[in-house]
Nucleic acid binder design. Sequence first.
DNA 1: GCTCGCTACCGTACGGTGTATCCACCAATA
DNA 2: TATTGGTGGATACACCGTACGGTAGCGAGC
Lengths: 217, 217
Amino acid sequence: MPLSREKIAATAIRLADAHGLDGLSLRKIAKELGVGPMRLYDYVINKSELLDLMVDVVYARIAEVGQRSGWRDTVLAIAHATRDAALDHEWFSDVLGGRPHLGPHALAVGEATAAALSAAPGVRDIDDLQRVVGALNAFVIGSVRREVTERRTARSTGTDEAAFQASLGPYLTRMLKTGRYPTVARLVIDGAHLNAEDTFNHNLTTILDGITRRRRT
Amino acid sequence: MPLSREKIAATAIRLADAHGLDGLSLRKIAKELGVGPMRLYDYVINKSELLDLMVDVVYARIAEVGQRSGWRDTVLAIAHATRDAALDHEWFSDVLGGRPHLGPHALAVGEATAAALSAAPGVRDIDDLQRVVGALNAFVIGSVRREVTERRTARSTGTDEAAFQASLGPYLTRMLKTGRYPTVARLVIDGAHLNAEDTFNHNLTTILDGITRRRRT
DNA sequence: GCTCGCTACCGTACGGTGTATCCACCAATA
DNA sequence: TATTGGTGGATACACCGTACGGTAGCGAGC
């Protein structure tokens, strides 16, 4: 069975899922495929292009959610699919917003979102649409990045209270005990129990309401 | 004049400003300081710690905006300062949201934002506060990343229409000409004239309105 | 005063990366 | 049969972060 861009991208994704983007190297991918490192350059021009390939594979999965009945349901579905994809492939959040996503599936997702939002109330001309798309994307990108980062640090420090206090504690608790960051302290101590998906959904709804509300003319 | 963490961080920032985060290496920093590469490890444990150091220097500049008269002005000032900082130090946007920002100045900025937002209407308990802080940060992170990415691709492709069509054109225009992405095509063709700062401010205001609006109880 | 041990600096070296280049082999054609 | 073209592989280069061993200076004890 010969090599192909698809197969290369698939194993690259598998490796990135397992060991992160830093742990991903062309040599490891090649070894996994039982092939010399240079063979990959017959199918891919760059490591960067390989990354673009991987990204677009993920976008393909996001695009699968397709179109819902109303503009709002469509936007919600895409946003949640993006979040789900990023939780399945944490490296995806590392490149979210960091490079232009121009693959065919990425464009399809962009088209679906923009088309849905152009039907929203309060979006009258293309300038409105550009702003609304920008705001929504910004929120989704930032949310997903934050969540993945939190999940990573939680995993590295251990999830239970004691381990957390032990790892970040020596520094962070000392900082918080200075009394200079009372609000942050309260957030860290009292605010860890919120469900991540609910929070995402809540904020998404709020922002969607905000940006599609008809404004004073 | 001996070495110091501050001096190392300062030259690292200068180099990162000039050549990006990928072009930043401990060896280059050391050479710039007229010193062997290993000398840096007397002041810094890791490259990662050095990055944290650089990040916190930028946060120090953001923290300088201090407190404004009202909660809203404070939040707006911090958000704009963050954007300004990221535009001055584009690498900053690469790490925004990608790692926990726990330096003293980062915490100070977080404290100022959280304290301000806790005084906003519609923020009743700490759960509200957590959600609101999360939403705002997500938007700022995502916006800034998007803007920096756009600026980079604009710089690399050249800003004028012809160069753009020539570099991204062969691929992107072909994609858009397929007619499968009509809304995206309209956005790309007609929507390039919006001022970035105005857009940021507009969306920021909208979102701030949305998340601090008193909701049905 | 002399030696000894310790500390602070330094260069070298290792394992890894992305990628350019060259080479050996093998099939098909003149 | 001789040649050529292409294909897969190995080697090589420049660079990276960082572990490690050595060395020179210097203060303390006999």
